Amino acid sequence: MGLFDFFKKKKETVEECNKVELKGIVCPTNGEILELSEVPDEVFSQKMMGDGFAVKSNDGIFVSPVSGTVEMIFDTKHAIGLRSNDNIEILVHMGIDTVNLNGKGFDVFVNVGDKVKSGDRLAKMDVEYIKENAKSDITPVIFTSLEDCKSVKLITGQAKVKEENRIELV
Rank of each mutant, 00 (worst) to 15 (best):
G2N: 10
L3N: 10
F6L: 13
F7V: 03
K8Q: 07
K10N: 15
E12S: 07
E12M: 11
E12K: 04
T13P: 11
T13I: 15
E15F: 09
E15M: 00
C17V: 06
C17T: 10
N18Y: 05
V20S: 02
E21V: 15
E21W: 03
L22H: 00
K23I: 08
G24Y: 05
G24M: 04
V26M: 13
N30D: 12
G31F: 09
E32A: 12
I33H: 08
I33Q: 05
S37R: 15
S37T: 14
E38D: 15
P40K: 11
D41K: 01
E42G: 08
E42A: 12
E42P: 11
S45W: 10
D51W: 04
G52H: 06
G52S: 02
G52V: 05
A54Q: 06
V55N: 08
K56E: 15
S57V: 01
S57W: 06
D59F: 14
V63K: 04
S67N: 09
G68T: 00
G68F: 01
E71M: 14
I73K: 13
F74E: 08
D75H: 08
D75W: 01
T76L: 03
T76R: 05
T76N: 10
A79K: 00
G81A: 00
L82S: 06
L82R: 05
S84M: 03
D86I: 06
D86W: 09
D86R: 00
D86S: 12
N87I: 04
I88W: 03
L91A: 02
M94P: 04
M94F: 04
M94N: 01
G95C: 06
I96W: 03
N100A: 14
L101E: 08
L101K: 06
G103E: 10
K104F: 03
K104L: 07
G105Y: 15
V108G: 07
V108H: 02
F109Y: 15
G113R: 06
G113C: 04
K117L: 14
D120W: 10
K124C: 06
K124Y: 13
M125T: 06
D126E: 13
E128W: 03
Y129K: 10
A134N: 06
K135Q: 11
K135R: 14
I138N: 13
T139Q: 08
V141Q: 00
V141E: 04
F143V: 00
D148P: 02
K150I: 05
K153P: 01
L154E: 00
I155F: 13
I155R: 14
G157E: 11
E163D: 04
N165Y: 13
R166G: 07
E168Y: 15
L169W: 05
V170G: 13
